[in-house]
């Protein structure tokens, strides 16, 4: 399965960015192959409105099954839910730490907008 992490860096040791729509980059990790790719979100950082919606479209197009981020707003939540993407919110400092928590089953899916907007 593919998991998208919001980050400002390009490696597994990079810090998490706790914003979703305005995160500079998405690191998409493939747990089957243990490889990852990095998607630039410069457009989302600069857009005047609808950043969360556009980010949700971007990760959906990348074929991810899960999203690990800090928070996610109500509009992005609606689009991600429609695309069948499970949202996990975390306070882990790095992608590696968040991935470790994910694999250990320590992250719980956000079932509602309120969960995602903690």
């Amino acid at each position: 399965m593919k998991i998208a992490f919001t980050t400002s860096g390009e490696t597994l040791n990079a810090p998490m960015d706790f914003r979703f729509g305005r995160a500079p980059k998405f690191l998409v990790y493939d747990t089957d192959k243990d490889t990852f790719e990095v998607i630039d979100n410069r457009q989302g950082v600069q857009t005047a409105q609808g950043a969360g919606i556009q980010a949700a479209e971007t990760v959906a197009r990348a074929g991810v099954d899960s999203l690990v981020t800090g928070h996610c707003g109500p509009k992005a939540f609606r689009v991600l839910s429609a695309a069948g993407i499970t949202i996990y919110c975390t306070g882990a400092p790095t992608i590696a730490a968040a991935l470790k928590d994910f694999r250990a089953g320590k992250l719980t899916p956000a079932d509602s907008v309120d969960d995602a907007w903690q």
């Binding site: 949700a56 689009v79 695309a83």
Partner: peptide
């Protein structure tokens, strides 16, 4: 981004 379709019936955001 006021109307979004991801191979689904579009979601409308009237406020945008």
């Amino acid at each position: 981004s006021a109307i979004v379709s991801l191979r689904t019936t579009p979601i409308v955001f009237p406020e945008l």
